[in-house]
Design a protein around this nucleic acid. Structure first.
Length: 578
RNA sequence: CGGGGCGUAGCGCAGCCUGGUUAGCGCGCCUGCCUUGGGAGCAGGAGGUCGGAGGUUCGAAUCCUCUCGCCCCGACCA
């Protein structure tokens, strides 16, 4: 690859509409250009990076026994109606009607299509297990596309679907994918973590998210320092409160005036107590009805846990007006006693004694409230968000909260789709059974963005070697010197022969320009051929990541560099079960 | 969807409040000279329906209305 022949429109200045690092650098380094909101052109280098990720994904998927196919982007509404998702899926699903008035949509995912294909073509347990995948462009009409490739509307995704004859077999398929994902992200040279996750709208019984660790990540992860437990905030389990100990005397309920005190902080300060002695009553709109959730004053409700407990489709905090309309109580003074709506409680609340609650009357709270005596709850469960003060639910170890970017998500689906769409096979007894499915996604284009979020400095991108668009860039400095040009050409050819992906910066530019561009686009290794070569026959090889530099003679330089690169790649391809 | 902001040369911006002749600046681009180890210098040059439509006015990038596009924040703690 010759720099002068490739479209790499680098930018000196920061584009005004790019906020996050990866977006800014992808634009500046000439990897992408925006076509319209959330939709990007991939320029040669951007595409090269994506291809590198794709290649690793393909190799590991194939190794795990999956087969590649390609499904259409346009899908008929009929299939989505069969699965029930035509109604369930929100406006993210871009729907349209073709000239024959057939309802269609752009595929945000392919469960329906693959299930349809498999039910038509696969009929026997002898054909199982089956794992099919594709790497394809997806379209999701995001509410607010942002952050460049991080949350685009159109993006490249690898999605795989497994079909098994039994639940146990499906677990094996799931585990195989989990292992494959570990290998994939390891081989990409990324620092990542697999966490327990909620299954969300895709449904199914359990799932893991693969998170690239980066301070700028949108998601918060909970990682145990002592054991292997890791989960995202939505899912992260909280240790049940330690029971036993001295049971305090239940004090008499007492109504106290708390004029104008609505927030936990205001109430507790006014009453001279700590937030741990107060229970707040949060009201949620759960599939159209109101539900009150009790959590300790210093805790926060985790809506996804609530959603799962109630088996709800949609859960959101109810607005003040609505709460007042139904309960007749202004927010801030709500309490569980005599409340006209369903009340559920976080497990922590059940262990509390003599706490403060709202009195269901403006400007009043109740002291020394107790569950059972003063009010009852319909259900209680772990409904709150973990904090760094909590201990690991599994081993009691110290928890750490850190941020990450979701790049992969695997689900065990069970028979949700196969049952809805009547996708069955005959088992060994000749009985029709629905397939047990799993689905496994990787945001390929997002991996590139996440890699940059995780690996960059003030000069630009620092690509992990395995997914860099090119591995080595050669900078001949001084176009006038025939010796330099010749040496650069020779090295370029030799590296090519060694199977190294190399770019020759053959532009007639001043050194500074070449250095800046090489840094910006993040090429892992840079070879400079300049003055020292003319004088001493030495060239300089510098590693982008840490600036480590070695000067070496031309002879053997290509082999040496190729050796370094091969060793570095091999070191990442560690693998095996997790 | 709600709130805020921005659309002026390929990119980044000024000008707009307080209307007035040829609409500026930096980067980039083209030509020439010069320069060559961290985004050089000099000289010359090309490039604009000021997002679009309508209106006010003698006169609109500037004021008004509508419209399109884009960006940011929010859509969580009583």
């Amino acid at each position: 690859m010759r720099y002068s022949k490739v479209l790499i429109p680098t930018l000196k200045e920061n584009p005004s509409d790019a906020e996050v690092v990866s977006h800014r650098l992808l634009l500046r380094a000439g990897f992408i250009r925006k076509l319209t909101s959330g939709v990007y052109n991939y320029l040669p280098l951007g595409l090269a990076a994506i291809r590198k990720v794709e290649r690793i994904v393909r190799e590991e998927m194939n190794r795990a026994g999956a087969q590649e196919l390609l499904m259409p982007m346009v899908q008929p509404a009929d299939l989505w109606k069969e699965s029930g998702r035509w109604e369930q899926y929100g406006p993210e699903l871009l729907r349209f009607t073709d000239r024959h008035e057939h309802e269609s949509c752009l595929g945000p995912t392919h469960e329906e299509v693959i299930t349809d294909l498999v039910r038509r073509e696969v009929h026997s347990y002898r054909d199982l297990p089956l794992n099919l995948y594709q790497i394809q462009t997806k379209f999701r009409d995001e509410i607010r596309p942002r952050f460049g490739l991080m949350r685009g509307r159109e993006f490249v995704m690898k999605d795989a679907y497994s079909f098994d004859a039994s639940d146990q077999d499906a677990d094996v398929s799931y585990q195989a994918m989990r292992d494959a994902y570990h290998r994939i992200f390891s081989r990409c040279g990324l620092s990542f973590r697999a966490v327990e996750a909620d299954t969300g709208s895709i449904g199914g019984s359990f799932s893991h998210e693969f998170m690239v660790l980066a301070a700028t990540g949108e998601d918060t992860l909970v990682i145990c320092q002592a054991c292997s437990y890791a989960a995202n905030m939505e899912k992260a389990r909280v240790r049940p409160p330690a029971g036993g100990g001295d049971e305090p005397v239940l004090l008499a309920l007492e109504r106290v005036e708390t004029p104008g005190k609505r927030k936990v902080e205001a109430v507790t300060e006014f009453l001279g107590i700590s937030p741990q002695q107060l229970v707040k009553t949060m009201v949620y709109l759960v599939d159209g009805r109101l539900v009150a959730v009790l959590v300790r004053g210093d805790h926060e409700v985790q809506p996804v846990k609530l959603k799962n407990l109630l088996g709800a489709v949609e859960v959101e905090l109810a607005d003040d007006d609505r709460v007042f309309a139904v309960t007749g109580v202004p927010t801030g003074y709500l309490g569980p006693q005599g409340l006209a709506i369903e009340v559920v409680a976080d497990q922590e609340v059940m262990a509390m004694r003599n706490f403060v609650i709202g009195a269901n009357e403006k400007n009043f709270h109740l002291k020394n409230a107790n569950v059972g005596r003063d009010f009852s709850v319909a259900q209680s469960a772990d409904l709150r968000q973990v904090t760094e003060q909590d201990r690991c639910a599994v081993c009691g170890g110290q928890l750490e909260l850190t941020r990450g970017i979701e790049v992969g998500h695997i689900f065990k689906l069970g028979d949700k789709y196969s049952r809805a769409m009547q996708a069955t096979f005959q088992d060994s007894e000749g009985v029709e059974q629905p397939f047990v499915m799993g689905c496994y996604g990787i945001g390929v284009s997002r991996v590139v963005a996440a890699a940059i979020e995780q690996n960059h400095d003030e000069h630009g991108i620092i690509f992990p070697l395995p997914i860099a668009p090119v591995q080595v860039v050669i900078l001949p400095l001084g176009a006038k010197e025939a010796a330099i040009t010749t040496a650069a050409e020779t090295l370029y050819e030799e590296l090519g022969r060694q199977g190294i992906e190399v770019m020759l910066d053959d532009r007639d530019e001043r050194p500074g320009v070449k250095f800046k561009d090489a840094d910006l686009i993040g090429v892992p290794y840079r070879v400079t051929i300049g003055k020292r070569f003319v004088q001493e026959g030495l060239i300089e090889c510098r590693r982008r990541r840490d600036g480590q530099t070695e000067t070496l003679p031309m002879t053997g330089a290509a082999e040496h560099l190729a050796g370094l690169i091969r060793a570095e790649l091999a070191a990442l391809a560690v693998p095996g079960r997790v």
